[in-house]
Design a binder for these strands. Sequence first.
DNA 1: GGATGTGAACGACTTCACAGCG
DNA 2: CGCTGTGAAGTCGTTCACATCC
Lengths: 223, 223
Amino acid sequence: MNKGGDASDRAANETEARLSRASVGRLSLYLRRLEILLREGTTKVSSGTLGEALGVTDAQVRKDLAYLGHLGHPGVGYAAPELIDAIRRALGVDREWLAALAGVGNLGRALLRYRGFADRGFRIVALFDADPAKIGQRVEGLEVHSPDAMAELLPALGVELGVLTTPAESAQAVADAMALAGVRGLLTFAPGVLRRPAGVNVVSVDLTVQLEQLAFLVQHGGE
Amino acid sequence: MNKGGDASDRAANETEARLSRASVGRLSLYLRRLEILLREGTTKVSSGTLGEALGVTDAQVRKDLAYLGHLGHPGVGYAAPELIDAIRRALGVDREWLAALAGVGNLGRALLRYRGFADRGFRIVALFDADPAKIGQRVEGLEVHSPDAMAELLPALGVELGVLTTPAESAQAVADAMALAGVRGLLTFAPGVLRRPAGVNVVSVDLTVQLEQLAFLVQHGGE
DNA sequence: GGATGTGAACGACTTCACAGCG
DNA sequence: CGCTGTGAAGTCGTTCACATCC
């Protein structure tokens, strides 16, 4: 449903063909691998060598990279710096993203201190928690606000993304509130399925599902 | 590979057909939904109502559940308690799993306090960290050991699973060491791809990949 | 020669549609 | 009649294989 739609797209010239979810995930992996290779001095890489370390076939690598345009040089391979730039642009990590985090519990605090966010240009600039005891506290240099303040604060700060580390029960309400406050993407760690507010993209990291996945694999001797 | 093998399986009659990874993930979601429904007093559920809240078609639900055996009652639906038991058995969460955690940093500590683990029968019984300053400390009632102690401790405790919250650089070495110590499944949070030791199953939760997935979706207006 | 880009074959997963059972 | 279980059809993603270009 809703295929082309009213798309208020700016001159979306390059990356037009549909990237599958799996492809996008692999692009992330290529990107990290390429950054390591470049740091080690490698400036040219072939689809075979790039895929090898990641367990991806060379054909798959070429298909994935073909979406970004004609970056490969037949007989030679890909130029690492060029490729890195192209993937960064395609993934949207060539700029900074402002995010708000809701649910300042154990996991929330851990994520606040997590380097990976900042390294990729994701900056958490606002904290929210429903617990009155936490409101007003400072965590990692940021004040904890009441969820009621979202409607005012998020647009003012220009926050585009939300990170949900609330209990499962409150996740949906917080997601809806964030959507109303103009957030366009949510990364949720709350177990369970979130009904996505209109115009909001959701990526879910459900630890319970992952754990059960693992238990299943081990139990059934999946290799 | 290794289909029937030497499997020290107790009468493994039912769950024989291949469950896809996606199916297993959905079974987790069904399970949680069913538990909520049952708590609310619902004891019968049809494929349509079960799938609705999760965004899964009725046919898909039936296909998934068919792997577990003939549990459905035509014209009626499925009996929730029966179904819950069957899914628990299939996923292997009808028993306790002992796990060790390596990397007692922010994320590791957050996971230690995370309820979801214990709730599903995953018990963390040993901690490891390479930092000499941390070795000997007690965290959440558990002593932090040197990684060198794994070979001795893990088999003695009967640990089957490992949780990796180490930096990316050390993840592979720790994974290999755990494999040697008899661990059969790993849940890793280290960014990057792990080369899986023989006989070990790996589930990776790569936050960087998830973040970039989200940035991509938002950037390209994926709804 | 060596490696890319890509149609074609293949395979895996999902949806359709319907027979069959309570 | 309602809802399951399942072959058949359809869709999507991956691998193959090869023409093409440096």
